[in-house]
Design a protein around this nucleic acid. Sequence first.
DNA 1: GAGCACTGC
Length: 690
Amino acid sequence: MPSMASSNSAQRQSNHNTDVNQLKKLKAEPFARRQNFEQHRKSLPIAAVEKVLLEEVRNNDTLIVVGETGSGKTTQLPQYLNNGGYCRDGGIIGITQPRRVAAVTVAKRVAEECGVALGQQVGYAIRFEDVTSRSTRIKYMTDGLLLREALLDSYLSKYSVIIVDEAHERTVHTDVLLGLLKTVQKTRSQGVSDAVNIDHREAKNGMLLEKHNGSEVASILKQCQGKKLSPLKIIIMSASLDARVFSEYFGGARAVHVQGRQYPVDILYTRQPETDYIDATLITIFQIHMEEGPGDILVFLTGQEEIESVERLVHERLPQLSESKRKLLTFPIFSSLPSEKQMKVFMPAPVGFRKVILATNIAETSVTIPGIKYVIDPGMVKVRTYEASTGIEPLIIIKTSKAQALQRSGRAGREGPGKCYRLYPESEFDKLKDSTTPEIKRCNLSNVILHLKALGIDDIIGFDFIEQPDRIAIIKSMELLFLLGALTEESKLSDPVGQKMARLPLDPIYSKALIIASQFNCLEEMLIVVAMLSVESIFYAPREKLEESRIALKSFASPQGDHLTLLNENFINSRSVKHARDIHSQIRRNAEQMGFHVTSCGDDLLPLRRCLAASFFLNAALKQPDGTYRALSSGLTVQIHPSSVLFRMKPDCIIFDELVRTNHNYIRNISRIDYLWLAELAPQCYALQE
DNA sequence: GAGCACTGC
């Protein structure tokens, strides 16, 4: 790897500087820090191509930048563009990230490098947090947030450049954003002068259409009036493997490659396929521990259950080793683990000990753990899929893609040369898919459709997605939106229901529940229920204290069902509670802005259950003689999940929030309703039989 | 009487 030499020397250089700075600390700190940043910036691989990049951006409306880990593209390119004059007329350089932490940490770093206060020239915006000001010129944000902004300003007119970072991850948000940007760019470059002259009576709902002839460019928002729209530069940043996909999508856009900076990682394969990858994992952990030099081990497993069993097995075998070799510590990490426990993986091991981190996918991109020298990759991953026929989203365990295997092995080369043990033969690696199936091909599309419709894009099947979602999945989701009253018979966004639903940052069913609750005078209560349903369970039951947590839970139980239980906080996950509170205050504000009256039904919670029936009617189920339930819309036989407060009570007619398939079809978060309410409140689905 | 990968608005 040619970049290695320069990387090492750069490191020595900066260490030397740090020492010198310590001596001058009192007098010259700000200056020294700036100088340090300057040195660091110049040492990044991307610095060598600054001029080339600026020239390519000048000559091309769309550019693909391919850069591996450590190239510096995320922090540097926006600064180059700023210096290159792309903010001159008040334009903003927007950089999107799939994850919130990335947006925040990169923005902080860049503000420091620029020597400005965060939120001034450099800022960030994520849900619940807007750290920008009128002077902000470089703005980091989540891609989902930019999509929301597009609902208010469909031209994204305040941005002169939009950089879509980590595009290879292909989240739903990224894919929808790419489609939108393509349309916006076209409109801004050719339709601008026409559009500004459009008769305003034609403009409705901030329409943004793909065709730009005559009155169809009705996409004029008030804020665009009298404003001269400048062309939009789009930059797509991606890791190397799939640059061609992006280039083709943007009409053969140019791609520039930027060298990465990573330490070399030795990849080792097994000779034969493993029949039991858990056992193979265990053997590999101990093999590394006995034979290899110091350095921590990162193991990629598929879920909590595997992590806990490997942890148990390691502890069972440890006593078989000689005493001096027992210095091995395990640390689990997965997203539902409370943050205090997650934090433990970041603590350095005591002297002489080796850490083994047992992780899910969370360690692939979301969390970077220092000290990792060895990666064990069994090659499996648990993913959510979508079955259009039933609407179920089952989790299944599948083989990783090549890109994913590469990402995992890269985790061993962040601080020095490392090793990655792939627990399958090299011939198997060659058979893996190049990249992971994009999320848009395996998820429920109702929110995507609602969003596109609100942007004025009516032809969803004809929409120019980078990868077309399944036709059946589109139709299924449109059906759902129609039954909820969000779409008209002509598949247009309905006014006001569809319009209001699109404005709320929630699942369509939850938005509908808020709209109905505002009419039934129980919005106060429904805002709480919906906020709680929108987060992972706030109840946390560690295995070792299962009984205790059950007793604590019982004191909250409402005999009317789980939704009412959520209204009534000892075994509570504080991260979930905070998240629910944030969502609650956001949607309450949204509701008020939309003119909803936030009133309470007081002690009589009957109207609340009627609202639940009126919005979750597609998730209604009837008890059958054998105590199981029949889900009315899918016809599936389902069972109440044992975690439900109604598990033993088994009311005749219920609505549920979600259906999960494990050993059985389990329904979760359930409320008792009256069967007759369905015909009364959802006649579009349930006609009374004569 | 069960166990759910990861994000995001």
